[in-house]
Design a binder for these strands. Structure first.
Length: 308
DNA sequence: AACCTTCCCTGATGGC
DNA sequence: TGCCATCAGGGAAGGT
């Protein structure tokens, strides 16, 4: 039976965190910064002390990157595999409790005090704290000067942004040209479409009825169109369910999402497909665990579906 | 240019 | 009980 691995924060999880932070700490002012020497910091640690005294203008997102917008800087976070950003409120009791669920694994619930995996603490003048915690330290924190040019430059190599005006079919198709790798691998490439990771790549391929090992140049145009539609579809569902929590992901108030209950193939190897009851398979594609239904996602071009 | 492999890192897990 | 090998994987870096 397939056992879900530790999931990475993908676009829906980062967007859920962004919305939570925006609604709770926008307008607050950073008073002090505490950090431990750690490879997640992509700036000299002493530069982070420049954040002191700056107020929080808001929070942005590009792909899987979260942008803390300050008066004079952009602080850009990538959560890697196990990054968590939570707000700790002194008026709310801490929880040290862990819960273990069959489908969701180990999760920390509600707010918690800093521990040995907490690498950055932003203490606000109102007494609250923004905590960055990252067990495996695959995350990254960058500091940029507060200008549109610096931000555009930083994100210059990133692919199409789902839900934005730049997410257009003609550009999507152009980016698939002369590519011979597996479609699953292309979906994980952030230079193609930004924000898609292992979970939502598998889900989008299932929704589009495309086998993950299909080579990009063998895809029919109607299959690419279905994939173009499926990507924002599964991402939107993920956002609506508050993200997917399999192990480490929590939103900014420390809560789990519920999209894991909504997943059709990811983490469901050995279980029957919801559409046709065929057993979901788990294989490795491009060094990544990959889940699919062999009936709904055939190796040769799928039959064109009627639009309704 | 495109593609592939290796590496980073910790905690959960299973075998003995 | 505990020790050790194995696995998970986003993205940077290096090789072909």
């Amino acid at each position: 039976m397939d056992r879900p691995g530790s999931e990475m924060p993908e676009l829906p999880e980062v967007e859920t965190i962004r919305r939570g932070l925006e609604s709770t700490v926008t307008g607050a002012t950073i008073e002090t910064v505490l950090s431990s020497p750690c490879r997640v910091f992509r700036v000299p640690v002493e530069d982070l002390y420049q954040l002191c005294g700056q107020s929080i203008k808001g929070f942005g997102r590009r792909g899987k990157f979260l942008v803390l917008e300050l008066e004079r800087h952009y602080c850009v976070f990538h959560l890697g595999m196990t990054g968590q950003i939570t707000v700790r409120d002194p008026d709310v009791p801490d929880s040290e409790r862990f819960i273990r669920q069959e489908t969701t694994g180990l999760q920390r619930i509600r707010q918690h005090p800093p521990d040995r995996h907490t690498h950055l603490e932003l203490h606000l003048t109102d007494g609250r704290q923004i905590l960055y915690r990252d067990i495996r330290r695959f995350g990254k924190i960058h500091l940029l000067e507060c200008s549109a040019k610096a931000l555009n430059n930083f994100f210059a190599g990133l692919g199409l942004e789902p839900f934005s005006g730049e997410y257009r079919l003609d550009d999507f198709l152009k980016r698939t040209r002369s590519r011979k790798l597996c479609i699953k691998s292309l979906l994980l490439d952030q230079k193609f479409v930004a924000g898609v990771g292992n979970i939502y790549a598998d889900e989008a391929l299932f929704l589009a009825g495309i086998h993950p090992r299909r080579r990009v140049h063998t895809l029919r145009r109607y299959e690419k169109e279905r994939l173009f539609q499926a990507i924002p579809g599964v991402l939107e569902a993920g956002i609506n369910f508050g993200g997917t929590s399999l192990r480490d992901y929590v939103s900014s108030d420390g809560q789990s999402g519920s999209n894991q209950e909504n997943l059709q193939v990811y983490g469901r190897g050995g279980q029957p497909c919801s559409r046709c009851s065929t057993t979901i398979q788990k294989v490795v594609v491009g060094q990544r665990g990959t889940h699919f239904c062999p009936e709904c996602q055939p190796r040769s071009p799928g039959r064109r579906r009627s639009s309704k």
